[in-house]
């Protein structure tokens, strides 16, 4: 296989904070339209890795290409305009604005041109309907429930009309029924909008049922990458999840 030119390719990506190595030498390829789960014990470097993929943190070393173009070290708005959208672990919506205004925001910036993904609807109404927030359109974002803010976060990410959606623990704290609906929504993002999705979740079970490919980070290193069925049997993964020091967050 030749070097991949479509999608997102990380090669030997490393991030160090002072003496601490948060992400170490990670290489992977996210292909267009893939639904990928990213798991790992506490402190594995999952969120840090997301921060790299969305430009929030520049890698200390390594390369990061989007459709063949180098993006390592560029600012988050470049990533957004290149078709990479993300959510945050704790929803970060614009509290004083209405739900509709929150979605209009991304549409006005990274989502202004549809050249990266015309499949994502451009109308704010359609986006709200897609995530199921149409009734809340004129409500202040700060006033809706945290679970609905999660949905709004996804609508905001979609408003940039991305090709790759990075979801950071969007199912955390939801009820069993809500988790089911969330998993369904995420699948629809891929099936109906043609997005590649990388989904971080702390709860391994949810991910294993929902995705086709699982990436496992442990102590900042990539220890497994494959279909869920194979990954659960991987010795290194089992070790990481069952090993004694796992509950200690750094």
């Amino acid at each position: 296989m030749t070097a991949p030119s479509q999608g997102l390719v990380a090669e030997r990506v490393t991030v160090r904070f002072g003496g601490l190595t948060a992400v170490s030498n990670v290489s992977l390829w996210i292909r267009p339209g893939e639904l990928v789960g990213l798991i790992g014990p506490n402190g594995a470097g999952k969120t840090t890795f997301f921060n790299i993929l969305s430009g929030t943190i520049a890698p200390t070393s390594g390369t990061l290409r989007i459709d063949g173009r180098e993006f390592a070290g560029r600012r988050p708005d470049h990533f957004a305009r290149a078709g990479i959208a993300r959510t945050f672990q704790t929803p970060r919506v614009f509290g004083p604005m209405t739900v509709a205004e929150n979605v209009r925001f991304g549409r006005a910036f990274a989502g202004r041109r549809a050249d990266h993904n015309p499949q994502v609807p451009g109308e704010v109404d359609d986006l709200l309907a897609f995530v199921g927030l149409r009734d809340d359109a004129e409500v202040e974002a700060a006033a809706i429930t945290p679970a609905r803010q999660r949905l709004l976060e996804i609508a905001m990410a979609l408003s940039t009309r991305p090709r790759l959606l990075l979801l950071d623990e969007v199912a955390a704290g939801l009820t069993e029924a809500e988790v089911q609906r969330m998993a369904e929504l995420i699948r629809r993002c891929r099936d109906e909008l043609g997005l590649a999705v990388v989904w971080i979740e702390h709860a391994v079970g949810v991910i294993m049922r929902a995705v086709e490919r699982v990436i496992v980070l442990h102590h900042g290193e990539l220890i497994a990458d494959g279909p869920p069925g194979e990954v659960v049997r991987d010795a290194a993964v089992v070790e990481a999840y069952l090993g004694a020091p796992m509950e200690v967050a750094p």
Partner: peptide, 24 residues
């Protein structure tokens, strides 16, 4: 749009940046 970008920076600068605002 410029004003919207300024308001976004005021509300949550990092979030605005990830939605494509060239904040700097």
């Amino acid at each position: 749009r410029f004003g919207l970008a300024l308001a976004g920076i005021g509300a949550d600068e990092q979030r605005a940046e990830t939605l494509g605002v060239p904040t700097r």
